[in-house]
C-alpha cells in the first residue's frame, strides 16, 4: 500500500478548515495536507515527492494572493511528476476567460462552485481518487471504501483476478 496525499489550497483559514472537515473520511487511509497558499502547497508537494509518495488529488481555491489557483495548477500540469495528479478548482467567481485558461492550460479535471455541498465535494474527490489510483496502476483494493464504485466498475472492465 502506497502513501497517497490529497492537497488542499485555500488562503482563507476558515474555509480551508471547512474543506478539510468535509473530507475527513479520506483521512483514514490517505494523508490530507492543508495549505494556505500556492507556495506552501508547492513546498509540501516537493517534500511528498522527495519521500517517494504520491500526490493523488489537489483541491485548490481560485482567487488567492500572490499566485492564484489557475496559475498554480498550470504549473502543476506542466510538471511531469504530477502528470496523473487530479486537479479540482474550487471557485467563487469564474469568468469566461478564467475557465478557458483553466481548461486549456491547467487541464483542470473538475470545477466546483463555491459555496459547495459536502456530498458534492466528497463525490468529486472520491471520483478523482479512483481515477488516480487506477491510472497509476496502484492496488485499489485497500481503498475501495473511499472510491467511487461506478467509476471503479467501468474502469475494471478488463481487470483480471489476482
Amino acid at each position: 500500500m502506497e502513501n497517497l496525499t490529497i492537497i488542499l489550497v485555500e488562503d482563507q483559514r476558515e474555509v480551508l478548515q471547512a474543506i478539510a472537515k468535509d473530507l475527513e473520511k479520506f483521512e483514514e487511509l490517505i494523508r490530507i495536507e492543508e495549505c494556505e497558499s500556492a507556495a506552501e502547497a508547492e513546498s509540501v508537494m516537493k517534500q511528498i515527492i522527495d519521500r517517494g509518495d504520491y500526490v493523488a488529488v489537489i483541491v485548490s481555491d481560485h482567487v488567492m494572493p500572490n499566485k492564484n489557483g489557475v496559475d498554480f495548477l498550470i504549473e502543476v500540469n506542466t510538471n511531469p511528476t504530477f502528470k496523473r495528479t487530479r486537479k479540482i478548482l474550487l471557485t467563487a467567481l469564474a469568468t469566461h476567460q478564467d475557465t478557458i485558461q483553466a481548461i486549456n492550460k491547467a487541464n483542470i479535471d473538475l470545477y466546483l462552485e463555491k459555496p459547495w455541498k459536502k456530498e458534492e465535494l466528497v463525490l468529486a474527490v472520491s471520483t478523482m481518487l479512483t481515477h488516480f489510483i487506477l491510472d497509476s496502476g496502484l492496488a485499489y483494493t485497500p481503498y475501495v471504501s473511499l472510491l467511487n464504485s461506478e467509476i471503479l466498475f467501468t474502469k475494471l472492465r478488463n481487470a483480471s483476478d489476482v
Binding site: E150, F153, L156, R157, A159, D161
Partner: peptide, 15 residues
C-alpha cells in the same frame, strides 16, 4: 472472462 471483470460489468448493470 476474469471473475473481477465479470463482477465489475454485472454490478455496473445492476447498481
Amino acid at each position: 472472462m476474469s471473475n473481477t471483470a465479470t463482477t465489475a460489468m454485472m454490478l455496473a448493470i445492476i447498481i
